[in-house]
Design a protein around this nucleic acid. Structure first.
Lengths: 241, 241
DNA sequence: GCAAAAGTGTTATATGTACACCCATGA
DNA sequence: TCATGGGTGTACATATAACACTTTTGC
């Protein structure tokens, strides 16, 4: 790292891929992965949909910028936020304006996302049926989805989609939606319980047409243990990490 | 991502953590992880050791910049190159000059590293015994080492330290050096052979004081299968990825 | 009682690990 | 022939997956 006080050679932006689960009525109530996009109102790619984001301000940290633009476009607070990748190829934008984008990916609670603000230029799309995107954002979303999949398998991030208390069936539904396949309820229960990811409460969900399931809460005394030796950064909009 | 033609809010730099294995005579010929550092010749942190790198030039891709600065400081070509993380906290540098560093990590062949150019301001250090580093480079190196460890366990990058042909014992030595523990030769052999990572040649290493071991080569018909859906980028200094 | 989901138990298979043992060479 | 690392075989422990079975509620 050198610190010449020259003009930077590229514009630095921060974008975020925001994930929530949404029960699509057409698919029979099974939740699916959705994400919000913003419509570009200027060239290049005017009119196309793109990831929310913006230029990095001089005084804010990278994760802060990601959480702020996330909040600006959706009014939401990320429950999970992690850096994805820095995209900076010279060919990713039409000639003239080179942009290096540091991209984050985030999870937001699905019930909050349901009543999230949407405007003329902000809309939610199912992740497997996106419109044509600006720049290389198609590639970025695919990469973020891949990270979401792989991380769901070995990490404990699923609860970020849910509320304070949840049943194991709800947690399993999250896994199934993200992984795109059914999981054995019995084995899922044992795996989750053995991991210590959740703690049983003494409450039960009532009003079901069958045996009432026990409610669990996230065990925050164990950390996610996969972000590496990077210091646990508390981002300014609350939530974890 | 927006494309306002404002002045960028931070200087953008690219740095690289470069790893090679070196047989330390003091430790009884067991190879260890070493990395090259450059001495800073100006404030801040003048005189301290730091990661090789430099500002991003307007016309070059990120990976190209990493490979170029790697070549500038060591004269070497990376055999493996991967983006590590973008470090951009406002607190990582003394007030005044904010720098966002996109850090790569690289593997170079150990025999090439042995005869790599070193100057007054470039020196190799063992990874577990580094001098005080400038900025947050201590943290960056620790993170890179963690990534090297974890990636060595599930990926097939060890051959990047070796030459064209190698014995399974040599490959095992690489794993042992990086992981810092001994591995069962029998089980290591079976695991590697089952993974398809290497192909047996019909050549044998002669001149050993015991049974001559078979030579293997890397199986490049199988890709590393862990970089996600990111397009395979051929960097300009040759080598793979 | 019946349907449906919660929750428990059992078994088969795959994977990982430890270690005994034979093989082929230089000295 | 002996020492040494190369290479093979095998048994044991643990993890994963498949699925039968019991429990508890609303209707």
């Amino acid at each position: 790292m050198t610190t010449e006080h020259t003009r930077a050679s590229a514009i630095l932006a921060v974008s975020t891929v925001i994930f929530a689960l949404r029960k699509d009525d057409e698919t029979g109530g099974l939740p699916q992965v959705w994400l919000p996009l913003v419509r570009r109102i200027r060239e290049p790619f005017e009119g196309r949909w793109a990831l929310p984001g913006g230029p990095l301000r001089g005084e804010e940290d990278l994760a802060y910028a990601a959480a702020r633009t996330l909040n600006d476009t959706t009014g939401l607070t990320p429950r999970y936020l992690e850096q994805l990748y820095a995209f900076g190829d010279t060919s990713r934008s039409p000639a003239g304006d080179r942009v290096v984008s540091i991209v984050y990916w985030a999870l937001v609670r699905s019930d909050e996302a349901e009543r999230a603000s949407v405007g003329e230029n902000v809309r939610w799309f199912p992740a497997d049926d996106l419109p044509p995107l600006a720049f290389d954002h198609q590639l970025i979303v695919e990469y973020a989805l891949w990270r979401l999949h792989t991380k769901m398998e070995y990490s404990r991030i699923a609860h970020a989609f849910l509320g304070e208390r949840f049943t194991l069936a709800q947690l399993r539904e999250v896994h199934e939606a993200v992984l795109g396949r059914a999981l054995d309820p019995a084995n899922f229960r044992r795996t989750i319980e053995a991991s210590g990811a959740v703690v049983a409460t003494d409450e039960y969900l009532t009003g079901t047409p069958h045996r009432p399931p026990r409610l669990y809460r996230y065990n925050d005394s164990i950390d996610l243990a996969d972000a590496g030796p990077l210091p646990r950064q508390q981002h300014p909009f609350g939530g974890e990490k």
